[in-house]
């Protein structure tokens, strides 16, 4: 009997213990995989990078992290912290980049929101508060033999798939970009939503993405797609296209109908009738009485004249 109760209690307790440990580790430590720590930028941090990093920071990070060096970050748990603080600056560029990319708990994932270059620019901005910072040697880039890479997006309506074709120019000869990773996103209000999995291009430089059946589009059914070539050796390449591949989103606007919150022209009929009806009713009597007063005066003048 006792044992059964014990087991019962333990089965209830154990998940909580794990939950506790889990949340503890989440709030206290953010472990970055070793190989990610060592990742370095592919370009030198210039003033220009820092500047665009700053504007990206203002837009995406400021609300929680506050102004660097001011320590006015939001009082959240786990604490966002001040990016100019020692704790932040003591980590490697790779760690910062990883954390921005992957996110955790309240820290959003930026891998679908900011491009790789943009994420590095944010790092550059954060580093600009550290006088002792010396940028480590740049990552080696496998030199691309071609001049330019272009991505062509084709919508295959029959099979409901999107075909992305990457073409590079090598020695003035057009060649497909083979075995490169491609990711497809649909643009949303905040950031981008990944569609299907990331794919590798085939021998013809093509990747095929299956589109969901009920993809919501704008009011005429268009969806803005973004295809990103996730191969740093080609640099930062992405292509957007507005394609009629979604369902028209016919959401009625809150201001379409007559409503209390609308402009006067679209005020509820009952209100217009009550207001103008009431005003007209009362003021017609007031006007009537003013006319009566005029009459009263006329009567008086007639009487005095007769006398």
């Amino acid at each position: 009997m006792k044992r059964r109760i014990m087991i019962k209690y333990l089965t209830i307790l154990i998940p909580f213990v794990f939950l506790y440990i889990n949340s503890y580790s989440q709030t206290e430590e953010w472990i970055v995989p070793k190989e990610k720590k060592e990742v370095v930028s592919t370009f030198n941090f210039t003033d220009e990078n820092i500047k665009s990093g700053e504007s990206l920071y203002q837009k995406n990070c400021l609300s929680c992290h506050g102004n660097p060096t001011k320590g006015n970050f939001a009082p959240l748990q786990p604490s966002p912290g001040d990016p100019a603080s020692e704790k932040f600056q003591n980590q490697s560029d790779g760690s910062m980049f990883y954390k921005i990319t992957e996110g955790r708990v309240l820290m959003p994932q930026f891998k679908n929101i900011l491009s790789e270059k943009e994420r590095w620019e944010v790092v550059a901005f954060i580093r600009s508060f550290n006088k002792n910072y010396v940028q480590p040697a740049l990552a080696k880039i496998d030199e691309f033999k071609g001049d330019a890479v272009n991505i062509e997006i084709i919508f295959d309506k029959e099979n409901r798939q999107l075909i992305a074709k990457a073409i590079g120019t090598v020695k003035e000869k057009i060649e497909p970009v083979k075995k490169a990773e491609m990711v497809l996103f649909a643009k949303r209000y905040f950031g981008n939503m990944q569609i299907d999995e990331s794919k590798r291009t085939n021998e013809e430089g093509m990747a095929f993405f299956r589109l969901p059946e009920e993809l919501p589009g704008n009011d005429s059914g268009y969806v803005e797609f973004i295809v990103r070539l996730n191969e740093s050796s080609f640099g930062d390449i992405q292509k957007t296209a507005l394609i009629h591949a979604g369902l028209p989103k016919n959401m009625e606007k809150l201001t379409d109908q007559r409503a209390m919150w609308n402009i006067t022209r679209k005020a509820p009929v009952w209100l217009l009738i009550s207001y103008f009806g009431g005003v007209l009713f009362v003021w017609s009597f007031i006007v009537y009485i003013l006319l009566q007063l005029y009459k009263l005066r006329k009567i008086g003048s007639e009487v005095t004249n007769n006398e």
């Binding site: 009597f285 009485i289 009567i299």
Partner: peptide
């Protein structure tokens, strides 16, 4: 005083108007 002479007609107007108001 709007030429008030206190005629019956005037009294009637005042009474009616005041009552409406």
């Amino acid at each position: 005083s709007l030429n008030w002479v206190g005629s019956e007609e005037q009294i009637k107007i005042i009474h009616k108007s005041v009552r409406i108001l």
